[in-house]
Amino acid sequence: MRVSKRFVGPLFVLPALFVLAMLVFYPLVYTFVLSVTDPAGNYVGLENFRTMLDQRLTSRTLQNTFVYVGFSIVFQIILGTAVGILLNAKFWGRSGIRALIVVPWVIPGIVAATTWGWMFHTEFGIINYMAQSAGVIDAPVGWLTNPSTVMPALITVNVWKMFPFVAIMVLAGLQAIPEDLYEAARIDGAKLHHEIYFITLRHLRPVLASLTLLLAIWGLNAITIIYAMTRGGPANRSIILPIQIFRQAFEFFQFNQAAALSVMFLLITGVLMVIYVTVFAEKE
């Protein structure tokens, strides 16, 4: 039996869409239902939201989330772009180095977390030892236990893990820039920083915009590093929204309040996703 031509395309697409709908859209709808009901299933309006917003922890969480994601993105983009530009230059061993620097990004997040956790160890960590030998600090710093250093330490790990991805994307963007633009600029006597500013960064702008949004969405979602290194401590100084959702659900077993947090979380990421889809789906 031949299928009418009109339906061939949709038939190919349908199985994947069905699976995604079951796994993503059904749970999404269910999150909203859970967020406005109590454990017995009775409608309670915005009660769960009120309970969560009244907790002082929630405002601390939101603040931490923005600090963690914001600073991570800034350093990931700066470092990633610089490395992308560096790896686009011609030098001996270039393809080997390009492959090597991507390794932090492909390894499991948990491995990055435990390895850096050991390096940040207060008494026996290599970082305290090297910083003390170099005279940067006088006494060992409790990087992950001191409320004022825990965020910078976690951001460092996150940047180390993700900048290779930025670098590779930037590199792909750079390779699309015609070489004669640079040659023309050099013949006109342009300095290196002129080239980087007027040619390289101008052409990279769309790539960097798309990367910033992607990094924001992934950063909001990144539980592994913080969960494994500090579980949100000390004194909730490093708790971010996804970790609070996890704890509310699987440590305090308050699924409805966790769902209310999830809805707030979805609203934040939803804004980013709408921007991403409207800006970048046009080209598809």
Partner: peptide, 24 residues
């Protein structure tokens, strides 16, 4: 619309659906 749905699937933060996914 189908492409947009798949993009949403790609970008959706998994932490936001662990609770309902657990229930399901």
């Amino acid at each position: 619309a189908a492409v947009a749905l798949i993009i949403v699937g790609q970008l959706l933060p998994t932490a936001a659906i662990i609770v309902p996914l657990y229930v399901v």
